[in-house]
């Protein structure tokens, strides 16, 4: 087979994988919409969907348009953001066990939310809006802290990881302090936020998370070839004319924005950003033109699937997706560790 033929076949296989992932996501979204504690039939849902938010059956319209649809779309958006951020993190840190939370972003978001819940509503902002804003702002503050260190000491992976560990422990400590100072009722609210749940989803959260993803996606994809080059090693990428430090800093800021947008409304949802990139690489390889969208789609698939499972395992209640992904993520993480090749072997 000629070079062009072999390459074209590879590209076709990757396009097919992307299409397959998109179709799987659509199927899971449909399953998520028809699953729930209300026990609405498929026919009722279908009717409510076509009737729109102002349909005659007020109950069905409210369940579909104000609860299930925003939750399902939010699951897809958060999963896609975490999957995309996870692949970028693993690539820029050259570490298969890195995730969007490696650098302490979740701890910072958790502290922001805990602080907001602890102090209560300020400046006339409703609590449901103030908490995500605080979580978002604190995530960006953590990112700014690490960015400053990276500007001063260089953007080598070990510098970023060490600064991230420092930030992680700093915000974890502050989060513990906030929990320690909280009354039992407030503590319950903080703990519920930290679980990571789609119950907090609304059309506002869909709009914010969706906008961040839409803005970041083209910026991430613009660096697809650069990120692919980075997989050939820092020295090699630099010798091909790539400014590795600048790429790392730029990627890191995009990861911060995507993670902040994802966790500020839903809370901490672990493992999606760790596992989705591994599935993407196994399916389409490391050409980041394909790996980035596949990681985003796989992240969305995992989180929507977790949402469906969360509704099915406990009839009449909804188990937070953060708990489902954490439980399912551990065997997945073990599988990743067991399939990793030791350094230096081929």
């Amino acid at each position: 087979m000629t070079s062009g033929g072999l390459y074209a076949r590879q590209i076709r296989a990757r396009m097919a994988a992307l299409l397959g992932a998109a179709m799987l996501l659509c199927a899971l979204l449909a399953a998520d919409l028809v699953t729930g504690p209300s026990g609405m039939s498929l026919a009722d849902l279908n009717k409510a969907f076509w009737a729109g938010p102002a349909g005659e059956d007020r109950g069905a319209a409210a369940i579909l348009w104000h609860i299930r649809l925003p939750q399902s779309i939010m699951a897809a958006l958060v999963g896609a953001s975490l999957g995309l951020a996870g692949l970028m993190m693993q690539t820029i840190l050259n570490n298969p066990l890195a995730s969007p939370f490696t650098l302490g972003f979740s701890a910072a978001a958790g502290f922001g939310a805990a602080l907001s819940i602890l102090v209560g509503a300020l400046w006339g902002l409703p609590q449901w809006l103030q908490t995500p804003i605080a979580a978002f702002a604190m995530t960006l503050a953590a990112a700014a802290l690490i960015y400053v260190v990276a500007r001063v000491k260089g953007s080598a992976p070990e510098v970023l990881v060490l600064a991230g560990i420092a930030v992680l422990f700093f915000f974890k400590s502050l989060q513990s302090l906030a929990q320690f100072m909280a009354s039992p009722e407030v503590l319950q609210q903080i703990v519920f936020w930290l679980f990571g749940s789609l119950l907090k989803a609304s059309w506002t959260s869909v709009l914010v998370c969706g906008t961040i993803l839409l803005v970041c996606l083209p910026l991430v994809l613009r660096d697809a070839w650069n990120l692919t080059s980075l997989r050939m090693g820092d020295a090699n990428a630099a010798s091909l004319g790539l400014d590795v430090n600048r790429l790392r800093r730029r990627g890191f800021l995009l990861v911060a924005a995507l993670t902040a947008g994802a966790v500020c409304f839903t809370g901490t949802i672990g493992f999606v950003g760790l596992i989705a990139p591994h599935i993407a690489r196994a399916v389409v390889g490391e050409d980041h033109r394909f790996a980035l969208p596949t990681a985003a789609l796989m992240g969305a698939v995992i989180l929507v699937a977790a949402s469906v499972i969360g509704k099915l395992i406990s009839p009449g209640a909804i188990v937070p997706v953060g708990i489902i992904t954490a439980i399912a993520g551990i065997p997945m993480l073990m599988a990743v560790i067991l399939t990793l090749k030791p350094t230096g072997t081929r």
């Binding site: 692919t228 050939m232 090693g233 020295a235 090699n236 630099a238 010798s239 490391e286």
Partner: peptide, 11 residues
């Protein structure tokens, strides 16, 4: 082409 090279890329 630098001396040190490390390659675990799935490319």
């Amino acid at each position: 082409m630098p001396q040190a090279f490390q390659m675990n890329a799935r490319l």
